[in-house]
Amino acid sequence: MNLRLRLTVCAVALVASSIAYGQSPHYSELANLPFPGGYPATKFVQPLQDEWLFQRAVQVYLWTLPALSVFAMKEGSEQKFGAGYNVLPIFKHRLDAKTLIPHRIRM
């Protein structure tokens, strides 16, 4: 193995280990809550519901990112080229993951 590859592997291992050790004990606490009879203890129902609501909100945020991105591209296209069903911007090169399209959303 060359030196550059070895350094990269070491850096990735270091970062991965520091992430694992640096995590909050929050999820460990949730995982170790008592579930007598397969159900959460009464005093732990609210923290579990709060965590469920938080996770649901994060998932909704992640699911809306693609839709918001397409909407922002539509708004930027309308500002630059005009609005209408017959206006279609054509790009010189194919779009890929590195393509940047600057836009402003009207408020």
Rank of each mutant, 00 (worst) to 15 (best):
T8L: 02
T8Q: 03
T8C: 02
V9I: 10
V9D: 04
V9G: 02
C10D: 05
C10K: 03
A11L: 09
A11N: 06
A11G: 04
A11T: 07
V12A: 09
V12S: 08
A13Y: 01
L14W: 04
L14K: 04
L14A: 13
L14S: 10
V15T: 08
V15S: 03
V15Y: 00
V15C: 03
A16I: 06
S17Q: 08
I19E: 01
I19A: 11
A20N: 04
Y21P: 01
Y21K: 11
Y21Q: 11
G22L: 10
G22S: 13
G22Q: 08
Q23I: 08
Q23H: 11
S24A: 14
S24E: 01
P25N: 01
P25F: 00
P25Q: 01
P25S: 01
Y27L: 15
Y27N: 10
S28P: 06
S28C: 06
E29A: 05
E29V: 12
E29G: 05
E29F: 03
A31R: 11
A31T: 08
N32R: 10
N32V: 10
N32Y: 08
N32C: 12
N32I: 05
L33C: 07
L33Q: 09
L33M: 15
P34G: 04
P34D: 11
P34S: 15
P34A: 13
P34W: 02
F35D: 04
F35G: 02
P36F: 07
P36N: 11
P36R: 00
P36S: 08
P36K: 13
G38R: 14
G38E: 12
Y39H: 13
Y39L: 15
Y39R: 15
Y39F: 13
P40Q: 09
P40G: 12
P40W: 01
A41E: 14
A41P: 04
A41L: 14
T42M: 13
T42C: 03
T42W: 07
T42N: 13
T42I: 06
K43F: 06
K43Q: 15
K43P: 03
K43D: 13
F44T: 05
F44E: 05
F44W: 07
V45H: 05
Q46K: 09
Q46M: 12
P47M: 14
P47I: 03
P47S: 15
L48N: 05
L48M: 03
L48F: 00
L48S: 02
Q49K: 13
